[in-house]
Structure formats: C-alpha cells, structure tokens
C-alpha cells in the first residue's frame, strides 16, 4: 500500500490581488519503501505541497479540495492533536538550510535527547540512541560530538545531524526539502549516498524535493514533474528521464548544462515566464511557453498514460498514439 496518497489536492492563498491558486488537482503517490522525487522550478508549488502534507500551512492558505491519505487515513480531516502525534514519529522532515535548523544555544546532544520526549526511556538510553543515530549518519566520534554546539559542526555535518534527528523515531515517511541545495557538490554526493543507505536500513519512504535533475536521477525511484502548481508528468525515473513525454520536462532536461555534451556559449533556455497564478490561463498551463503548442491546447489536458506507469498531462500523447 502507498504510504502517502495525495488525490486531486487544490490549495490556494488569499492575497490582496485575489485568490492565488498555488496547487490545482495535484495527485502524487509515494509507495512503501520508495524514494519519490519532485522536480520543478521556483513557483511550481513544491513548498505549498509539503506544508499541506504536514499541515503547517500559512494562515491565508486554503485547501479547496482533495485528500492527503497517509497510510489510508486522510490527514486533512484530522484534528491538530492527531496531526501533532504523527509529526516527528510517523512523518518527519529535513529542511533546506542546515545552518538554521538547530537551536544555536543548546548542544546537539541536548536537542537529540529532547526530541525523544515521547518515549518512556531513561536519559541514558535516549543518549545511547542519539549516539547510535549520529554514528549511523557517519559523524565520527559521536559520543564526544554530542556535547558540542551546532556552530562547531560544518554545514555538511549539520545536515547529517538533521537527518539523524528526523530518522530517530524511524518514521514511515521522510520529507526532504532541497536538503543538499546549500551544500557543496562533493558533500551533496555524500549526503545522497547516505540517504539511500539509511532509507534501505530504516525501510522508510522518502519524498525528495529538488530542482537539481541530476540529484533526482541519482537518488530517486520515481519522479513527479511539477509546473506552476500542476503535475505535468510522473513516472519511474528511467521513463521520465529517458523518454520525457511532456514538452516542459523535455525543455527542463535540455536546459541542464550537465546534459549538453558539446561545449556551447549559447545555452538552451525556456522563453517566457510562469503564468500568473491569480489569473490562470484557461487551457494547458504550459501552452504559452510550449514549442509544440497547437489548437487542442486551449483546453486543459487530463493526465494520460504515455506508457505503463508513466503519465503526462499533455494533448500530444493522444495525437502521437493515433498518428
């Protein structure tokens, strides 16, 4: 069964200009023990999606419709106390900036013991678990390191400590929001490798948000491509990266300089801007920037199967099948 099953989720924000439709009919499934990546550029709704899952939404956010099922139960209808019981134990999160995740005036050990407040264990046992967890994420000399403050660790180590804390309660779902963006490339590789090992060891599912296509390709089993608040393509990493079906996914892959083998001074771009989410265009959300736009694109495309388990919201799919 899927750990997380989001169906037709729509979230909007009340703004002075009107209703900003940040997410529209978003459906994403995170299967058991799988790593699902979400890619998309600024403004695609990644952050809104996370805040809807863990129910930490801005005061002006409003869920229009849909459901967020976690192990079969809809999180959106749960009470605040029930949600709080899930956060940190069943669903936990690693944030983007490792430098600001920890409390600067408490030792790492104190913070790692504090977050186990739910467990009826002695302090020594909690400390032991903290040591084990730090060792698991590859912090050398964990016993002594527990007595140190966050500023005594490098950025890469702090992010690993954040991962250790998030996995402490062995959650069923880990949400990682751009956990490597603030890190240097060589450390990024270390963290990704570690995440894979930990996922395997703990047996959790991971929802991994990133705008770095290479990282997604390296780490994830499945990938969801979002654009301006909608899912435009979803499938296995291999299907989506090897045979992208949506023109946006294709353009995104073409823009990645890592993808371009020949040296060039003229890099591909995606002309145009993302649409105004207050005054949405009526048809396909990507139509205005799409190189393959045609008559049908004035109507909003439904999700269609490009191949088994590989879906895309594009009119071209039906065309290519009949052609």
């Amino acid at each position: 069964m899927a750990v997380l099953d989001i169906q037709k989720l729509s979230v909007s924000y009340a703004t002075p200009r009107g209703e900003l439709k940040a997410l529209r009919d978003v459906s994403i499934t995170v299967p058991d023990r799988k790593i699902v990546g979400i890619v998309g550029e600024s403004g695609c709704g990644k952050s809104t999606l996370i805040s809807a899952i863990i129910r930490l939404m801005a005061p002006n956010a409003h869920v229009g419709s849909g459901q967020v099922a976690f192990k079969g139960e809809d999180l959106l209808t749960k009470g605040e106390a029930q949600i709080r019981a899930l956060r940190g134990t069943q669903i936990s999160m690693v944030f983007q900036d490792p430098m600001q995740t920890h409390n600067p005036v408490l030792t790492v050990g104190r913070q790692m013991i504090d977050i186990q407040y739910r467990d009826a264990l002695s302090k020594a046992e909690k400390r032991k678990r903290a040591v084990d967890m730090l060792a698991l994420v590859g912090i050398p000399d964990p016993e002594a390191r527990l007595n140190q403050y966050p500023f005594e660790f490098s950025g890469g180590m702090r992010q690993r400590i954040a991962i250790a804390m998030a996995l402490m309660a062995r959650p069923a779902l880990l949400i990682a929001d751009e956990p490597t963006t603030a890190l240097d490339a060589t450390l990024e590789v270390q963290i990704i490798k570690r995440l894979r090992e930990l996922q395997d060891e703990i047996g959790c599912s991971i929802l991994f948000i990133s705008h770095h296509l290479g990282v997604i390709a390296e780490l994830c089993d499945e990938v969801v491509v979002m654009y301006a608040g909608e899912v435009v393509e979803a499938g296995s990493v291999r299907d989506v990266f090897h045979s992208p079906a949506h023109p946006y996914t294709r353009a995104l892959l073409e823009c990645d300089p890592g993808h371009i083998k020949e040296k060039t001074r003229n890099l591909p771009t995606i002309p145009g801007n993302i649409p105004d989410l207050v005054n949405l265009p009526s048809g396909c959300i990507f139509a205005a920037r799409c190189p393959r736009r045609f008559d049908a694109c004035t109507a909003r495309p439904a999700m269609a199967e490009a191949s088994a388990g590989h879906g895309t919201a594009c009119h071209l799919i039906g065309m290519e099948m009949t052609a």
Binding site: P140, S154, V189, G214, F241
Partner: peptide, 25 residues
C-alpha cells in the same frame, strides 16, 4: 576529479566514476 565526479548527470543510468572524498574539508 572529485568535483567533476560530484556532478550527478540527469540520467539514471549514467555510469559515473564516483570519487568519494573522505571526511570534511
């Protein structure tokens, strides 16, 4: 070499030579 290798390619089947650096700077 490590910097070059630490550049994940947007291809799940890319056979990269991974040079993992030890420890921290």
């Amino acid at each position: 070499l490590a910097l070059l290798a630490a550049n994940p390619e947007p291809d799940p089947d890319a056979q990269l030579m991974r040079i993992e650096l030890q420890g921290e700077p």
